[in-house]
Nucleic acid binder design. Structure first.
Lengths: 229, 229
DNA sequence: TCGTAATATTACAAGTATGTGTCAGAAATG
DNA sequence: CATTTCTGACACATACTTGTAATATTACGA
């Protein structure tokens, strides 16, 4: 999973350090600058997933940076959270109208900002906010109904999809054929247990990608399990 | 352009009236309830575009309503703005973590709430705010009611327009025929699900341009999705 | 090493889902 | 009011999926 890339534009270096540390420990990839011009350059050279922007920075004002980010095609749709020391409603409204997605009023706790960032990312790029399931080199997006391995889309049928989804929801655990029939086919299905073998085979075939090793473990006389590769 | 549908869950009837009036005069279509259970029912029968939810309501708590909305497939992705009288950071963070997209602390001005609503809608469903949407090589202008692909105007019928607009507002996501009927034809339409196939076919035909590849993905036994080309 | 039980593989026919052309009535257009 | 466009439904064609059975292979204990 690629870490969400944040661009933090903040000229209070103590605060910037604190936030950088906190966000990085939460798995974000953070770049920091105190300067509006530099912010534009950084954003241009590697488009971030989200920008945290202090309203009051040296040089170009925060609101101006916001406007410029919106104007560039690359960054037009990158969500922006503004940090503002002001309580004035006018400023908040103006920020939103300029194209900020959200703002947080100082003082705030890192925890609150984290929650906001994650809420915004969840909206914009669900895949970044953990709505996908990942097990080893497999990634499953339930909303798009897609499974990929090592970045490669897998071609997978309905039953195999349900099967691997179930496995990915319970990695490492061994399931008997009976359990799999209940979970994937539905309780009380009248299907031969041997049939599970066939679908396991089909699943294995479907998830085979550049001869990577088979992540489905056969447990003799017990069932099957998915092992993170 | 169809008016964005808001669901307001607020038990202070004076405030509810005020907001309803203000939002309606801005062109929104507003439904109001003071009750959590009823809110769920209203949301189920006609999915709103955005929910404004008071944290403290009678019966089920706001946060519980939020959680339940997120749990239902139909409403899982509807943005939620919470209204809270509390300043406590814990509550705000909890709100965001439960799945709210934003919150506004009372007291607030209708103007600020309007700005927030419009910011959230712009982020989530640009077409509702009158902005053009681009998905891959498709471009849709909701004001002009036009769709183009690779700069070429598409000749497209009313139903197909609504269909592709819906798809472009939710790219990549897979929708069942039932969901599409609800979203595009209107809730409770008595139309054959197979008819969706026919319109998908017509849409595919309409958006075919210099034999570019078909951006509509068929997900067998699940539905259809629009993939950016 | 061998026999047995368990699992893997293959082929296939029946079942199910989707694609497509067409039509009659409805709705929009002028 | 005449004409055109749109809509929903249906039927047939096609593509994909699925469960089973038959056969091959493998693992394990005696």
């Amino acid at each position: 999973m690629s870490a969400p890339k944040l661009l933090l534009v903040e000229d209070d270096s103590a605060l910037a350090e604190l936030l950088k540390y906190r966000f990085e420990s939460e798995g974000y990839d953070v770049r920091v600058t105190a300067d509006g011009e530099e912010a534009m350059m950084l954003a241009a050279e590697d488009t971030p997933d989200l920008v945290i922007l202090d309203w009051m920075i040296e040089g170009v004002s925060g609101i101006e940076v916001c406007r410029r980010l919106r104007r560039e095609k690359e960054t037009a749709h990158v969500p922006i959270i503004m940090l503002t020391a002001r309580e004035a409603e006018d400023d908040r409204v103006r920020g939103l109208e300029t194209g900020a997605d959200d703002y947080v009023t100082k003082p705030f706790s890192p925890r609150e900002l984290l929650a906001r960032v994650s809420a915004v990312l969840r909206r914009v790029r669900p895949a970044l906010a953990g709505e996908t399931i990942e097990v080893g080199d497999l990634k499953l997006d339930p909303v798009a109904h897609r499974v990929e391995r090592r970045g490669r889309q897998l071609q997978i049928g309905p039953t195999e999809y349900r099967l691997i989804k179930f496995f990915m929801e319970h990695p490492r655990r061994v399931f008997s054929r009976g359990q799999l029939l209940d979970a994937v086919w539905g309780t009380g299905s009248e299907i031969e247990e041997r049939t599970v073998d066939v679908h396991i085979r089909r699943l294995r075939k479907a998830i085979t990608v550049d001869n990577a090793r088979d992540p489905i473990r056969t447990v003799r006389s017990a069932g099957y399990a998915l092992e993170p590769v």
